[in-house]
């Protein structure tokens, strides 16, 4: 047996912390202090480059350009224009997250049982890593070349099949036009994040299922699905967040107006005023963060339920 094989032979259960012997507790406490020091680089880094900028960003919405406290920017979030951009952001993110998660999970399933160091997997791993961040300018180029007005697919459908995808107007440069480009990075991101979880399934579970007379169907529905659920929904939320906060692709595709929240923030940052208000970017950022907190709370509730089941 080699060390690398060991995890497959060890049950994936949370081991209870071994009881500490009283005689060694002093020595252990001393080493605990040293171990604590090991956490400080990460703590300091996160404090300086995550928590501090976040607080600064969210606080600006509460002040006017002259530095006086105001709630006016927050109130402006509830005007129909801003509410509409939030709605657009939400449905595009939800749709592409669900489609991306399902298609990505299917690809992961298809890759099960292939050699992890084989040519197929190496190519797909690398391609997924690249495409997951094929965002922004490059992605806009790709889809303009594909389904733009003179795009390859647009032309092909029109000349060969007589189908005009833009019969009801050009939607590529509107919010619906974001769905296909967004899927182009959502599916690969799902493959990257979900594949390790799928490979964590133990062959013993399938054997136990077979021994007890279960079918492949019962294995997937009764064993694999509950075990994979937290990873799946975790990845799905990652995809939602990824789309909700994605800005470069939209910025390159949509030149007219600010139909989604990140574009609204950009115009607030660039022009300094949205709806004739200063520091509106801070308020929009706050609104965006509130939506994300609601989503992540739902995720966390869901996960603690599943974690309880797993124990």
């Amino acid at each position: 047996m080699t060390v690398a094989n060991a995890p497959t032979l060890v049950a994936n259960l949370e081991a209870p912390t071994p009881a500490r012997e009283p005689s060694s507790s002093v020595r252990r406490r001393g080493r605990g202090m040293v171990a604590m020091l090991g956490l400080t680089p990460f703590a300091a880094y996160v404090l300086l480059f995550l928590l501090l900028p976040t607080l600064i960003a969210l606080a600006t919405g509460f002040f006017t350009g002259k530095g006086a406290f105001t709630l006016g920017n927050l109130a402006a979030l509830f005007t129909p224009t801003i509410l509409m951009t939030f709605f657009s952001s939400f449905w595009v993110s939800a749709l592409t997250a669900v489609l991306g998660a399902v298609i990505g999970a299917l690809v992961c399933y298809a890759l099960l049982g292939t050699k992890s160091s084989g040519a197929l997997r190496t190519v797909i791993d690398s391609a997924s890593s690249v495409l997951a961040q094929f965002g922004g300018v490059m992605l806009a180029f790709a889809f303009i070349a594909t389904i733009g007005i003179q795009g390859v697919v647009t032309t092909l459908l029109k000349t060969q099949f007589g189908i005009n995808i833009y019969a009801n107007g050009v939607w590529l440069y509107q919010v619906p036009g974001l769905v296909l480009p967004y899927l182009y990075f959502q599916v690969p991101l799902m493959i990257i994040t979900f594949m390790p979880a799928l490979e964590g399934l133990k062959s013993q579970w399938a054997e136990a299922n077979a021994t007890l007379g279960g079918t492949k169907f019962s294995y997937w529905t009764r064993i694999a699905a509950p075990v994979l659920a937290p990873s799946f929904f975790g990845s799905l939320l990652l995809l939602f967040a990824n789309a909700f906060s994605s800005y470069a692709t939209a910025a390159a595709l949509i030149s007219q107006g600010s139909q989604i929240v990140p574009l609204q923030i950009r115009s607030a940052l660039i022009s300094e005023t949205v709806l004739g208000r200063e520091n509106m970017a801070g308020a929009l950022a706050l609104g965006m963060v509130v939506v994300m907190i609601v989503v992540m709370t739902g995720y966390s509730l869901l996960q603690s339920r599943t974690a309880r089941w797993q124990r």
């Binding site: 996160v46 480059f49 900028p53």
Partner: peptide, 29 residues
């Protein structure tokens, strides 16, 4: 082991705080 949830929470904060939000606060830093 008790800090595992804390670490996870910290690591997923950048999901709830997208780059376009973070950049506003990063400028002075």
């Amino acid at each position: 082991a008790r800090l595992r949830r804390v670490l996870e929470f910290v690591c997923i904060i950048p999901i709830t705080v997208p780059a376009i939000v973070l950049v506003v606060g990063l400028a002075p830093i």
